[in-house]
Nucleic acid binder design. Structure first.
Length: 568
RNA sequence: GGGCCCGUAGCCUAGCCUGGAUAGGGCGUCGGCCUUCUAAGCCGAAGGUCAGGGGUUCGAAUCCCCUCGGGCUCACCA
């Protein structure tokens, strides 16, 4: 936050423009070396001197000015030290003033649509959707905090052959019964049943196709069954969405859009962008972009996947006129989105360049890929229950006398915190293996670790309030002497940068890393610096400091959709 | 075979876009710390050819090229 002052000091003696200095200045690896550093290598050529000598020379020339307290040459680096208590005062006052908004960025007057998790209504949401939902809801939070207007949207894949498979199995073996469990799981059972029966009844495949034809023809009976089972699936998702903070401003249904898109393709054909092959299908030749040839419309005039997506992109931009459209879809579809965006561009849609596919890596089970058809999946709802169960056991280990209501409240906060953090701390693009036995821990780099730091602060503040009514706003002067304290101040000063990085890169993992660093720095402080036993100015300062840390931890966890408990 | 992604200690991971000062963490292992603000914590130790090779550079985990290993994808399925 005092970087500007450093730039001002450097501008004249180096003769470099401020913009260049801004990107050259770095943070030393150890705060003992300084708070900012200017590497002198760049000047070596033009000045024809060794970088070490340049650093020495600059150190003599530049006189520190508040809030910069010292300028020192260390090897080829010119290092700057800031007045730490001055910095602390600025940071803490800012946090107390802004509170829930601390770290947020100014409105950008730009709209971003985030599309996720686009489920298929034939089976319950699984671990892959968990990653999708958590990335989506967290990215929405982060973008909003970073000043964007966010439009969370969903595309429901509610028609097609896979949907007909569960419908067919239910029609044959379901005895028309009502769901006897969570309704999306009930639907999913028939999807698995279909695959199971397919072995001895190969004719099922043709029957499913026939059912799809009937559906498309508007067969009343089939449509009634479809509506009934779709509602079951969607009702189930609604409950799961609530668990993962998934909310949408707009939902598109494939059943309502799948027939469209044809006009766009025909228009493209007229313009000579596509061609008709021997059989009459309309094809785009993308070979010069190394994307091969891609069918846009079948010979019979029916649409394929990409036809629908072209249409959807168009109506999305027509509906909301957003500046950016982010698709959160697994990385196995990278090729599809490359083609989609390329074709949109060819068709002359200006928004093509504003489409972004946020691809995320696969989650594997210890014995390989999940397979819904075989029932080899980790379902979202089961995972949540499991996490809560583990959390409950941990809570009961520590507290014998909590009533059930309190235990239920805490296991929800801690269990979900552990799950969300576990998924979000990985770089989105990275594949990882989920091992149910040992994957999700409550120690080390975990959600509960961060939550624990928050709870500890709350505990101290509670005790202080009992004695003297701590009021952070009344504290005027700060007095810090410990490195651990300055480490916290620095991290907190850097919060909005972390928000910006996470937003611009669509990476909640950066926020997870940030909050982990802050929690870790707090725990180190906690063990070295007593708060309640400190006296006078030192105690006051430390109380204000931990109050600030609590605020930032909470703001950061909020962006990840993780709750900050007062007690654990 | 083509395209894309990935490869950092026994295991997991940050850093790579925007090259710089001893490559950060965590798990696990070993050794310490609860008459002191919640030990879901802290401190210490051991553990690294940053897959391998070449190049660019004063300087490469980071940029470029090649090789090897793993994954995804290249359907008139969605």
């Amino acid at each position: 936050m005092f970087k500007k002052e450093v730039i001002k000091l450097l501008a004249k003696p180096t003769g470099l423009p401020e913009g260049e200095l801004d990107s050259l200045i770095e943070i030393p690896p150890d705060s003992k070396m300084g708070d900012f550093a200017f590497p002198c290598f760049v000047l070596a050529k033009s000045m024809k001197k060794a970088p070490n000598a340049i650093a020495e020379e600059l150190a003599k020339k530049i006189k520190p000015k508040t809030p910069i307290s010292e300028v020192k040459a260390i090897g080829p680096y010119l290092n700057f030290f800031v007045d730490k208590n001055k910095m602390a005062e600025n940071v803490i006052k800012d946090i107390i003033k802004c509170d829930v908004c601390y770290g947020s960025l100014a409105p950008k007057k730009k709209k971003v649509m985030v599309e996720y998790p686009a489920p298929n209504t034939n089976k319950p949401l699984h671990l892959g959707h968990v990653r999708n939902m958590l990335l989506g809801s967290s990215i929405c939070n982060i973008l909003g905090f970073a000043g964007y207007e966010v439009i969370p949207a969903n595309l429901v894949n509610d028609r097609g052959i896979h949907i007909c498979k569960s419908m067919l199995a239910y029609q044959k073996w379901g005895n028309n019964k009502a769901p006897d469990k969570k309704s999306d799981h009930f639907v999913g059972e028939y999807y698995v049943l279909y695959s199971k029966k397919l072995g001895e009844h190969p004719e099922l495949e043709e029957e499913a196709k026939e059912m799809l034809r009937k559906w498309e023809a508007g067969d009343k009976e089939v449509l009634a069954l479809w509506r009934k089972m779709n509602k079951w699936a969607l009702d189930g998702y609604k409950q799961t969405y609530a668990l993962f903070d998934v909310h949408h401003k707009k939902t598109y249904y494939e059943s309502e859009t799948y027939k469209h898109g044809k006009e766009i393709i025909l228009e493209g054909l007229k313009k000579g962008l596509f061609y008709k092959d021997e059989e009459g299908a309309i094809v785009a030749n993308l070979e010069k972009d190394k994307l091969g040839k891609k069918v846009m419309l079948r010979a019979d005039g029916t649409s394929v996947y990409i036809t629908q997506d072209l249409y959807l992109a168009k109506i999305k931009f027509d509906d909301f006129k957003m500046d950016k459209s982010v698709y959160i879809v697994a990385n196995e579809q990278i090729y599809h989105f490359k083609v989609l965006f390329k074709v949109l561009d060819m068709l002359g849609f200006a928004y093509a360049k504003n489409c972004y596919h946020l691809a995320y890596g696969m989650i594997y089970l210890p014995d390989g890929r999940m397979k819904s058809r075989e029932g080899k999946v980790v379902e979202a709802d089961d995972l949540v229950e499991e996490m809560k169960g583990v959390a409950e056991a941990e809570i009961k280990k520590r507290h014998k006398d909590l009533d059930k209501k309190e235990v239920d409240k805490r296991k929800e906060i801690i269990g979900m915190g552990a799950l969300k953090f576990f998924v979000l701390k990985f770089d989105p693009m990275k594949d990882f293996v989920y091992n149910p036995e040992e994957s999700i821990s409550f120690e080390g780099e975990t959600g509960p670790y961060v939550q624990y730091a928050h709870a500890r602060i709350c505990s101290i503040l509670r005790k202080e309030a009992n004695e003297s009514k701590f009021n952070p706003e009344k504290i005027k002067k700060f007095e810090f002497n410990n490195e651990k304290e300055f480490r916290l101040i620095k991290l907190m000063a850097n919060f909005s940068n972390a928000v910006n990085d996470a937003a611009e890169n669509y990476k909640p993992s950066l926020m997870a890393r940030y909050v982990l660093d802050l929690a870790q720095a707090f725990n180190e402080f906690y063990h070295e610096c007593p708060v309640l036993k400190a006296e006078g100015k030192e105690k006051e300062s430390r109380l204000a400091l931990i109050y600030s840390v609590k605020t930032v931890l909470r703001n950061a966890l909020d962006l990840l959709g993780i709750k900050s408990p007062e007690e654990m």
